[in-house]
């Protein structure tokens, strides 16, 4: 599942635009991840800062 490193996130919405599931949404400066997230990792690539990480269920 997707981990948002909130100390890194710049809440720019780059990830939101590439998510094929529409699972990401910015609530102003807070990135929300919905249950539609499949952990595909596309957003982790697009992030300009490296704030997103797909983690194993056990690690979260």
């Amino acid at each position: 599942m997707l981990k948002v490193h909130r100390n890194i996130c710049g809440y720019c919405g780059c990830c939101v635009s590439v998510c094929p599931e529409g699972a990401l949404e910015l609530m102003d400066a807070y990135l929300e991840v919905s249950s539609a997230c499949t952990g595909c990792g596309i957003c982790t690539r697009a992030c300009p800062l490296g704030a997103l990480e797909v983690q194993d269920e056990g690690k979260v």
Binding site: C12, V18, C19, R45, C47
Partner: peptide, 13 residues
């Protein structure tokens, strides 16, 4: 569907 293909998003800073 407004999804931008990964190769066509300019990741910017």
């Amino acid at each position: 569907d407004t999804t931008v293909p990964l190769r066509e998003i300019m990741s910017s800073a």
